[in-house]
Design a protein around this nucleic acid. Structure first.
Length: 676
DNA sequence: CAGCCTCGAGTTCT
DNA sequence: CTCGAGGCTG
């Protein structure tokens, strides 16, 4: 299973590489591009993603390896002598106090346990190896176990001593620190890049990261980079090590490292909290970016007693400063109609930089939300990123509202097809009821049909289905299967090769598992999961069609609402017609009862979080399902294992609170391997 | 019937 | 990731 997976990925990567190189040739040398820039970018993006997941398949001639590409290569992987751990987070005062309480419980005499507070620098974590006082190697953090050797670049950074000061050194030590670019240098650098018409860096962190991973160390040397050091791993039993973390910081300073001067010893958690509060305000005055504070137990013997979880020390926690908020102007409210007919308003914002990226849009969810905020076009609003990712409008500054502003008038007609909108009793969303005729809904459906969770048609995405639909080549997904080479080639920006690929992909999708097909139908309340249940129970679309309400709701996981939604779907002659068309194009609409293999993981529930390095999440989920376990997306008491990849999110914290066992990617793979 | 737990749907940007 | 809503359990 593993081997097939890898060889097909290798082929896929090779195929992408060849395609892109071919298009490069056409574009740059022959000046006759066959595909649009957007399509080219998509191919490129896909290749980059696959390569970053499976770096073993990167070859020298890959288009991603050209100078100017940010994909990191050319650096040798290096296995850290001592693992580089992450930090657990405390998102607010309570969580910090809880961490403190939990930690102190481990000691019988827990009075006067000193803490050290430090600012958490928003940069790039690295590790420096010193042998007998000489700097011998510097590496990126990577996944904490293996990083990349960037010694030559790091040697250009002046705050990294090439030889330690003083005369007593351990035989071996690894110093951990954070590389950063001062805000002022970042501004200067971007100024220059702007003048040269070069792409600007989004934030100092990205600039530092980009600078340190240059293949040419001369470029690194030109960038103003600096480093704060904050930890050491000793590889020398005879060396007399510091007894406390604070002494360790002092030792680092004496050795000639730059140590952040704000670090402070605290007698109790209240003092630590006031350190956090103080810097939450003052951090903007600093010339470097900080995203929080780190609180550590000072006594190193106590640190050793506490030890580590699978990913982080128990004796330290990161206090996260609240996410950045910004004010900006709301330029317009756009109305989207999704594939189900659900109407969602989207705020169009004057673009602002927020927590590292430029935000121009934010969902307003529904009409209730607009009323709750009383948000009007032209208002000045506060935007913040929920969970650091999704922009959200959190409030409206009504003092800055002009006198002639009027409340937003919610449309009563679908913007795409002019059908009057409906709101069902007890539901929050408005719907466009023109389910079979609304162009916006059909486009959404087409897009869903070709997506990974449905028929997974490679090479067709949002723009292409919209193009097909707008050219009236297709009216619904079944028409995809009637597309001919000739009809495709008549389109703009479509050449033989792409047309062939598309026809092939479409044909391949005729044999997808039944569950995917059911999901693609777009029956209300029936998504990926429920479609899977239905496929397993009924084995064919026809059986599903003929099932009575009672039969449906008897199935585990299907209640009255879903059952009647399914029944309703199959009572609509248009849908019956659609399924007929699928069959006439030879799509697989039935599936033999799957052979029940060994189910060694029966009864277990897995949740995945963070980015997995050696396999992708969907694959991992399919694997555990095959072995009889469930794969869900949120952690609860019922979760057996949380598999945490790199940089896990809130799920990790929840698992810790609920006492759910956490597996590293490595441990997970071992577990799975023992069954195949 | 309340209180979980899960699922579905929609969303942003790199 | 988050909200809302459906299904199941005690």
């Amino acid at each position: 299973m593993q081997f097939n997976l890898f060889s097909s990925i290798e082929n896929k990567i090779k195929d992408l590489r060849d395609q892109i190189n071919h298009h490069n040739y056409l574009y740059y040398l022959k000046d006759v591009p066959e595909i649009s820039d957007a399509e080219y970018d998509l191919l490129f993006k896909e290749l980059k993603e696959l390569e970053s997941q499976y770096p073993q398949f990167i070859t020298q001639d890959s288009p991603t390896q050209r100078v100017g590409e940010t994909v990191s290569t050319g650096f040798t992987p290096y296995k850290h002598q001592f693992r580089m751990y992450s930090l657990d987070n405390s998102n607010n005062d309570d969580e910090l106090k809880q961490w403190h309480e939990r930690t102190l419980k481990n000691f019988s005499n827990n009075h006067n346990i000193e803490l050290v507070c430090e600012l958490k620098i928003d940069g790039l974590a690295i590790s420096l190896t010193y042998e007998n006082g000489f700097f011998t190697r510097g590496t990126t953090r990577g996944n904490g176990i293996v990083g990349e050797d960037i010694t030559t670049n790091l040697k250009t950074i002046k705050s990294i001593p090439l030889k330690l000061h003083g005369d007593k050194f351990p035989k071996l030590m690894e110093v951990r620190g954070e590389i950063f670019m001062p805000k002022s240098s970042f501004e200067k650098l971007n100024e220059v890049r702007r003048l040269n018409n070069e792409q600007e860096f989004a934030n100092p962190r990205n600039a530092a990261s980009g600078s340190v991973r240059q293949l040419d160390p001369k470029i690194t040397a030109e960038r103003e980079l600096s480093m704060f050091s904050y930890a050491v791993e000793f590889g020398d039993d005879n060396f007399e090590k510091p007894k406390t973390h604070f002494d360790l910081l002092k030792l680092l300073k004496d050795y000639g490292f730059k140590v952040n001067a704000t670090s402070k010893k605290c007698k109790n958690i209240e003092e630590a909290l006031s350190f956090c509060k103080e810097w939450e305000e003052k951090r903007f005055e600093l010339d470097y970016a900080t995203d929080g504070a780190v609180i550590k137990i000072n006594d190193i013997s106590k640190q050793n007693e506490l030890g580590f979880t699978s990913r982080a020390p128990r004796w330290a926690t990161a206090y996260k400063f609240p996410p950045e908020e910004l004010k900006t102007q709301l330029l317009d409210i756009e109305i989207n109609v999704g594939r189900t007919g659900a109407v969602t308003p989207v705020a169009v914002l004057k673009p602002v930089k927020l927590a590292g990226s430029v935000v121009a849009r934010a969902s307003l969810h529904n009409f209730d939300e607009i009323q709750r905020l009383d948000v009007r076009i032209g208002d000045v609003v506060t935007v913040k990123k929920a969970a650091e990712i999704i922009p959200k409008v959190i409030n409206v500054d009504k003092t800055q509202r002009s006198e002639d502003s009027i409340p937003f008038i919610y449309p009563d007609k679908c913007p795409a097809c002019q059908t009057p909108l409906e709101k069902r009793e007890g539901e929050v969303n408005h719907y466009c009821p023109n389910f079979t005729g609304c162009p916006s809904q059909i486009k959404g459906w087409l897009q869903y049909w070709v997506s990974k969770d449905a028929l997974d048609i490679d090479g067709i995405g949002e723009s292409l289905v919209a193009q097909f639909f707008d050219c009236e080549l297709i009216k619904d997904p079944s028409d995809l299967y009637g597309l001919t080479f000739e009809s495709l080639i008549s389109l703009d920006r479509m050449a033989e090769k792409s047309a062939n690929n598309i026809i092939n992909s479409i044909n391949e999708s005729k044999n997808r598992p039944l569950a995917r097909l059911i999901n693609g139908l777009g029956i209300r309340f029936v998504g990926k999961e429920t479609a899977g249940i239905l496929a397993q129970h009924f084995h064919s679309i026809d059986n599903l069609k003929n099932a009575q309400i009672e039969e449906l709701s008897a199935v585990d996981g299907i209640g009255d609402k879903i059952a009647s939604s399914i029944k309703e779907y199959f009572e609509n002659p248009k849908n019956i017609e659609f399924i007929k068309k699928l069959k006439s194009h030879n799509l697989k609409t039935e599936e033999a009862i799957e052979e029940q293999g060994e189910k060694p993981l029966a009864g277990m529930t897995f949740v995945f979080t963070g980015s997995l390095t050696s396999l992708d999440r969907t694959k991992a989920q399919e694997m555990v399902k095959k072995l009889g376990a469930k794969a869900t997306s949120s952690v609860s008491k019922k979760t057996t294992y949380l598999v945490a990849g790199d940089d896990p999110g809130s799920k990790y914290d929840k698992a810790v609170t609920l006492g759910v066992e956490v597996l590293s990617e490595e441990k997970f793979k071992n577990l799975i391997r023992s069954f195949i």
